[in-house]
């Protein structure tokens, strides 16, 4: 079931095309990572989806409707946008209760939400004294106040310590995989979300550059065999005869595509070349990510 659907979304701020013809969808019960370098258009996309920014073109729907048409939005969509969007002089509990009142939720939800995000002890403290991690937790508590079926998070890991990030992963996995919530989480650091997400959508300079499962992303990148040898050049004709494609990224270094490590080793043996290193390169997600977003 499609929970979030973005189709041909476009938004320009003056001459800058922040989001340019972006389309993707998020299914219920899955976590989708929305990735791209800073300034790629992630936040603008999410704000268009949430009705905070008016798109120039295209549609962004939640459960088939624009956000602004939702009668009780907090019970359908939860969003975490900035860590700082609290009044510093208000207590965590009051912050949530104000929202409960406006959203028509019982005030008791405020305490439950604080419990859920582990802030029960700080409920009556002013938010001004909260650490960044506590603010993120409070933001998550705010987002889940109405038990929404869709959760949208913009860079939620910013400012979290490793333990906080681990907690966040568990929190999101539980919501998506146990309760069927559709989660869309943006990040500029692939490594932050790579252990959590089921699917990835990659954006760069406002345009979509990849959409698919995490497995597809790593599968796309071929894993070459790297060979270090003083007389590396001697290997090239023999390798090419076996159908390999050879790159020479540096002096005495080859990167061999299209054949496996054993075939490369056999060639080395046949050509009697002294090799100092022969290794199958690991597919580095971050590398693929950088590659995709650089050239877009």
């Amino acid at each position: 079931m499609t929970a979030i659907e973005i189709r041909n979304l476009a938004k320009a701020f003056g001459p800058v095309r922040a989001v340019d013809d972006v389309s993707f969808s998020v299914a219920a019960g899955t976590i989708t990572g929305y990735l791209g370098p800073n300034g790629a258009g992630k936040t603008t996309t999410l704000r268009c989806l949430l009705g905070l920014v008016t798109a120039d073109g295209g549609t962004a729907l939640v459960d088939g409707r624009p956000y602004t048409a939702l009668e009780r939005p907090l019970t359908e969509v939860g969003a975490v946008l900035e860590a700082t969007s609290f009044h510093p002089g208000r207590t965590a509990r009051d912050h949530l209760r104000v929202i409960c009142t406006a959203a028509g939720l019982p005030a008791s939800r405020a305490d439950e939400a604080l419990e859920q995000v582990g802030l029960a002890d700080a409920a009556r403290k002013r938010v001004g004294g909260f650490s960044l991690g506590m603010r993120q937790r409070l933001a998550l508590g705010t987002a889940t106040l109405g038990h929404p079926r869709v959760l949208i998070l913009d860079e939620p890991a910013n400012g979290l310590d490793p333990a906080g990030i681990e907690w966040l992963r568990g929190f999101l996995r539980n919501l998506a995989h146990e309760r069927g919530v559709a989660v869309l989480v943006s990040s500029h650091v692939l490594a932050e979300v790579q252990q959590t997400v089921d699917n990835v959508v990659i954006i760069a300079r406002g345009r979509l550059v990849h959409q698919g499962s995490l497995a597809e992303l790593t599968g796309n990148g071929e894993r070459p065999v790297r060979v270090h040898a003083a007389e590396a050049d001697r290997l090239v004709p023999a390798l090419e005869a076996k159908g390999a494609r050879v790159e020479r990224p540096g002096d005495g270094v080859l990167r061999v595509y299209g054949v496996d490590a054993e075939a490369v080793g056999q060639t080395v043996l046949d050509e009697r070349v002294l090799v100092t290193e022969l290794v199958r390169e690991r597919s580095d997600l971050q590398e693929i990510f950088m590659e995709l977003t650089r050239e877009a």
């Binding site: 949430l50 009705g51 905070l52 956000y67 602004t68 939702l70 939005p73 907090l74 969509v77 969003a79 946008l81 900035e82 969007s85 929202i99 406006a102 959203a103 705010t142």
Partner: peptide, 9 residues
């Protein structure tokens, strides 16, 4: 932001 998310109208 939170205010308008809660009440988009």
């Amino acid at each position: 932001t939170t205010t308008f998310l809660t009440t988009p109208r």
